[in-house]
Amino acid sequence: MKTASCSTIKEGPFREVLICVVEGRSKKTVRAFFDLLGSERSRALTHVSADGAEWIADMVAQRAPDAALCLDPFHVVKWVGDALDTVRRQVWNDARRAGMKALASQLKDSRYALWKKPEDLTDRQRAKLSPIQSANKPLYRAYLLKEQLRQVFGPGGAERVHLLDAWLAWASRSKLHPFIQLARTIRTRRHDIANALTHQLTNARVESMNTKIRLLIRRAYGFRSVEALRAIILLCLAGYARPLPGRT
């Protein structure tokens, strides 16, 4: 069964309302949301939070040109995690080809220690990072770049755009090809990331809605059709008040 894409709108300062559930995940599904919303209300949107898909950005630019598109920080941090893992695999392959079995094994076992936040590391994982810091400068530099970008999305607002620019300068001269490429990608979306930092808007509440949808699917042991799934999602999460027989 194909996935169902969901759209929410914020009502007032705290409440999100599910208004659209469409089969698939493509430009067509985003267009269906804007069609449902209508031209006038689409143009009245002030902020949109989304992942890095270009087709989302294209549709927002067409249908809600005055809205500030905020690129969800989680997806940017995922990009930097992927770049870090690419560097780790490169270093691991170089060590393996050179017959450095102990180093290759050490690098392979360090994957989760490199990914995790420093404050969440176990003592064993901290021990795995220590030799990397002293003996593998490129990989440790990649690790620091990952952590620095994560810090860019810490508490704060528009002033963190300066931290983003500093990170881009560092990544561009890092001599690590995956990070140089990532810096180019982020530069193309810098405006959208700056919007997310300035307006402090993320996909967190949408992901919370997705968690509730997954719970509905588990409770029903799956659905035979997208229409059945769509109906139960709208019934439970769209704020509809359905009168029940024998009740007033």
Rank of each mutant, 00 (worst) to 15 (best):
R224E: 14
I180F: 14
L103G: 01
L107Y: 10
F74M: 06
I193Q: 03
Q200M: 04
R41T: 09
R150N: 08
W170M: 04
V77N: 01
L215C: 04
C6W: 02
S7W: 09
V206I: 08
I9K: 01
A220Y: 12
R25A: 13
H199V: 03
Y140G: 01
E16K: 00
V87C: 14
T188D: 13
V152C: 12
T248V: 11
L229V: 06
R150Q: 09
L37T: 05
F74H: 08
T248R: 06
I233E: 04
L45T: 07
P243N: 07
F153M: 08
F34Q: 10
P178L: 10
H47R: 03
V226I: 15
A32D: 11
H162Q: 09
A228N: 15
G157K: 13
H191S: 11
E11N: 03
E119R: 06
A169E: 13
E54Q: 13
N93Y: 09
T198P: 02
L176Q: 05
I186E: 03
P65K: 02
S42H: 06
W170N: 01
L129F: 03
V48Q: 00
Y221K: 14
S174H: 03
V17E: 05
V21M: 06
S26Q: 09
S225E: 11
A228S: 14
L163S: 11
L244H: 12
A220G: 07
L163N: 07
K78I: 04
I180Q: 15
A4D: 06
D82L: 01
G157D: 10
L244E: 15
I213H: 03
G24Q: 05
Q133A: 11
Y221C: 15
D85L: 09
G52L: 03
V91T: 12
K10A: 01
I19L: 10
E23W: 11
A104Y: 13
C20E: 03
W167Y: 13
R150Y: 12
S49C: 05
C70R: 00
M100N: 08
K78M: 08
D120T: 06
K116T: 02
Q148M: 12
A95E: 06
T3H: 14
F153W: 10
S134M: 14
L121S: 05
C236N: 11
F14D: 05
T185I: 07
L215W: 11
D192H: 10
R141E: 13
E40Y: 15
R88W: 08
K27R: 12
A44F: 15
R124T: 05
G222C: 06
L69I: 04
A44H: 11
L129R: 00
R242W: 15
R89T: 13
V161A: 15
L84E: 11
L235M: 09
M59R: 06
F34N: 09
T122Y: 02
A204Q: 01
